[in-house]
Amino acid sequence: MANTSRKLSSDEVSALMEGLKSGEINAGEGLNTDLEVSSFTFGSDNLELLGDYYALRLINERFARLVRSIFLPMLRLQPKINPFPPEVKTYDEYSAGLESFMSLSTSRIEELRGSMLLVLDPSFISILTNCYYGGKLASFPTKKAEFTATEERIIEIVSDGIRRCLENAWKDLMPITIRHVGREVNPQFATLVESTDSVIICSFVIQLPNIDSASFDIIYPLQTLKPIASLLRSRVQSDVVEDDTSWREKLQNSILNIPLPVSAILSEPQIKVSKMVRLKKGDILPLGPVDGVNFFVKEKLLFKAEIGETNGQAAVSLKSRI
């Protein structure tokens, strides 16, 4: 059998190239000449590789639920956090829309060998700082040029919490480890990618009562997510179901703390109206034989009990459940 996959020798390739240059061989002749061919540049950012970011949108939705636990102890309320659909821009286009003073925290995703950027607005940092130290929830429109030491500490707490929530949100798709690299306040000094490189912008809006909504962004370079493009296109959800014990404990505690009215009835004698109208102070009403005390919970008889005294107060001792 002939070997159909034989490679051309160097002499045959040279003869083919000379024939194409001289015109002896027509470039339009050969096999599969009717196929459409599109040009491709190696190293270009082909956004179609990531599809519609389905998996990334699921990660953002899960992260939005998890990150509420970071802001709850600071704001002393449960904020509502909604993710925006991921958006692709060049880093230059994104940074052009930022103020000259922001909180920019750069981190490295070890498994993807790439970086990410967390962008926090200074006014939101001021709100968190004020509420964290007992102040009221209020906006701070005044612009500033630097963060105080207290605000730097709040930024550190929030950034660490967000990194933990991101690792938890990503773990169903793939486990990642996020390591803090550095922090800047001027977008021009935040070295994430080149200005012409594409980035994926994941924005989150935090709805707060009686003041304007706040927001923060998480930026992924497109090159960082390209190695897992097939995973990000996948619409198969993980079979791992997380057992949210904290939610279960809070629900259990809420149910167990519901107040229920209880009552203990010794006897329910009957009396005629003619006798009742003649009652006066000091009269004695016979109750007849009493077989324990009926113990009611919200008008439902649950126990038989005995009446007594403990620590100088009247009490009942539960004897048997009905």
Rank of each mutant, 00 (worst) to 15 (best):
S103Q: 06
S105V: 11
D283V: 10
Y53H: 04
S100H: 15
I109K: 03
S39I: 09
P286W: 09
K300V: 13
S105W: 01
F140P: 05
P261Y: 01
S10Q: 10
I109T: 01
A15Y: 02
D243M: 09
I162Y: 02
G134D: 01
R233Y: 05
S213I: 06
K143A: 15
P85N: 04
A145Q: 14
Y54W: 08
V199N: 10
N257K: 05
L279E: 10
I25L: 03
A229S: 15
I206P: 06
G134W: 14
L20A: 05
E151P: 06
F42G: 04
T4I: 12
I178W: 05
L98N: 11
G292L: 01
P122E: 12
E299Y: 08
S105Y: 10
S317M: 01
G23S: 13
N257W: 03
V199P: 12
M74Q: 02
L166P: 09
L16H: 09
Q237C: 09
A27E: 11
S38E: 14
Q78R: 04
V293Y: 05
V185W: 00
D160Q: 13
K298F: 08
V236P: 00
F101Y: 10
D45S: 12
E309K: 14
V293L: 02
R164D: 05
L56P: 04
L77Q: 04
S100L: 11
T224N: 02
E146S: 15
L50P: 00
